[in-house]
Amino acid sequence: MARALKAEAAAVGFSECRICRPGDVPQVAERLADFVAAGRHGQMGWMAERMHWRGAPDALWPEARSVIMLAENYGPLHDPLAVLGLRDRAAISVYAQHRDYHDVVKKRLKRLGRWLIETAGDRPEIKVFVDTAPVMEKPLGQAAGLGWQGKHTNLVSRRLGSWFFLGCIFTTAELQVDAAEVDHCGSCRACLDVCPTGAFPAPYQLDARRCISYLTIEHAGPVPEELRAGLGNRIYGCDDCLAVCPWNKFAQASAEVKYHARPDLVAPELEALAVLDDAAFRARFSGSPIKRIGRDRFVRNVCYAIGNSGDPALVPAVQALCEDDDAAVRDAARWAVLRLKATLA
């Protein structure tokens, strides 16, 4: 059944399929507790909620006997770091340059789950998850053999590199498990050294409060002023620690066209993004994961990027936002104006 399941997973479009038990990650509870106790989760209160489930997947659904971990390749067709040198343009994380992966992955998971129910004996029960429940997908992915959690805490695969989403199916079916993956980072520090804001206190440790992905997506209100310059022109997420991983030499561009970047999101002009009102923002990012942060947080990020551009010609783009209805946008716009005018002094 496990072999047939993996063949079906490939047929529906998944790049990898591996299996573990819900209780195969006993170290997760302690690591999660330390992370939260240190306050490194920032404003992500949901990390602290239902920790007994996050730290013990076998407690989330006690009837589950197997966890099917799936990898979905979203490798880019272009160099995601090239845009960082274009200071009048915006850098958007590769995963957000087209369709929302939650929708795409969940459809595949449901197709595979239906197949399992119809094919396995005794019609097993299933639950599918894509970042939608208190499930620690990365430790489970390592336990199942999809990859290992690198020094940047993200999952790395010897075959897929860094560019893949994770989805999982909990099931009451008893399936043959795979061997866990081991660490292959060696002495490499590329992901740690490239971080513009110093978000890694030590290898295998992340302080989300300094992570650009967290600051541009999850963090509400003004970003701490000492971190704003480090954002550069990144307005939604950050790919730096993923992109520099040497294991990406084995990565391939995704075959799924829904993950291929929209041309208007590869390196959009900051000036054009700064003028978006709520309606225009919703229209432009319909079907995109960017839509969930809302216009105000998005434009706040654009203001920081403009302030970091070093281009005084962009002052008019943020000048009008100094009186925006949103307090964080006003603060970011005023900071950007002062920063750009300082370049003229």
Rank of each mutant, 00 (worst) to 15 (best):
residue 172 T to D: 08
residue 29 A to F: 13
residue 154 N to W: 05
residue 312 P to E: 06
residue 170 F to T: 09
residue 162 S to F: 01
residue 122 D to S: 11
residue 287 G to A: 11
residue 54 R to Q: 08
residue 64 A to E: 05
residue 140 L to G: 09
residue 334 R to A: 14
residue 218 E to L: 00
residue 275 V to T: 13
residue 103 D to N: 10
residue 200 F to S: 02
residue 196 P to W: 13
residue 321 L to E: 07
residue 290 I to Y: 06
residue 65 R to E: 14
residue 198 G to K: 07
residue 10 A to D: 14
residue 296 D to F: 00
residue 224 P to Q: 08
residue 237 G to N: 10
residue 337 V to Q: 06
residue 16 E to W: 07
residue 213 S to I: 02
residue 295 R to A: 06
residue 89 R to Y: 02
residue 31 R to S: 10
residue 336 A to C: 10
residue 221 G to T: 04
residue 93 S to N: 07
residue 93 S to H: 01
residue 215 L to E: 00
residue 41 H to C: 11
residue 134 P to S: 15
residue 235 I to G: 05
residue 68 I to R: 10
residue 87 R to W: 01
residue 266 V to I: 15
residue 45 G to D: 15
residue 308 N to H: 00
residue 183 D to E: 14
residue 108 R to N: 07
residue 169 I to N: 11
residue 111 R to E: 15
residue 51 M to K: 12
residue 182 V to M: 12
residue 128 V to E: 15
residue 35 F to M: 12
residue 329 V to E: 12
residue 84 L to Y: 12
residue 131 D to W: 08
residue 213 S to M: 00
residue 78 H to V: 10
residue 324 D to Y: 02
residue 254 S to F: 03
residue 303 C to W: 01
residue 301 N to K: 04
residue 327 A to V: 09
residue 167 G to H: 13
residue 27 Q to M: 11
residue 322 C to I: 03
residue 69 M to Q: 15
residue 80 P to T: 11
residue 22 P to R: 14
residue 28 V to N: 13
residue 194 V to E: 11
residue 94 V to E: 09
residue 67 V to Y: 05
residue 145 G to Q: 13
residue 19 I to F: 09
residue 345 A to E: 14
residue 19 I to S: 12
residue 61 W to S: 05
residue 150 G to W: 04
residue 249 K to S: 13
residue 4 A to N: 07
residue 226 E to V: 01
residue 91 A to Q: 04
residue 43 Q to M: 15
residue 337 V to G: 08
residue 301 N to A: 05
residue 129 F to I: 05
residue 6 K to I: 03
residue 305 A to N: 02
residue 204 Y to S: 08
residue 130 V to G: 10
residue 268 P to A: 14
residue 327 A to P: 00
residue 271 E to T: 14
residue 15 S to K: 14
residue 53 W to F: 15
residue 207 D to P: 00
residue 108 R to P: 00
residue 95 Y to E: 04
residue 230 G to M: 02
residue 68 I to Y: 01
residue 78 H to Q: 12
residue 187 S to M: 03
residue 187 S to L: 12
residue 193 D to A: 14
residue 16 E to P: 00
residue 107 K to T: 11
residue 299 V to R: 08
residue 330 R to K: 14
residue 263 P to T: 11
residue 31 R to P: 01
residue 248 N to C: 03
residue 49 E to G: 14
residue 222 P to H: 03
residue 228 R to N: 04
residue 242 L to Q: 15
residue 215 L to G: 02
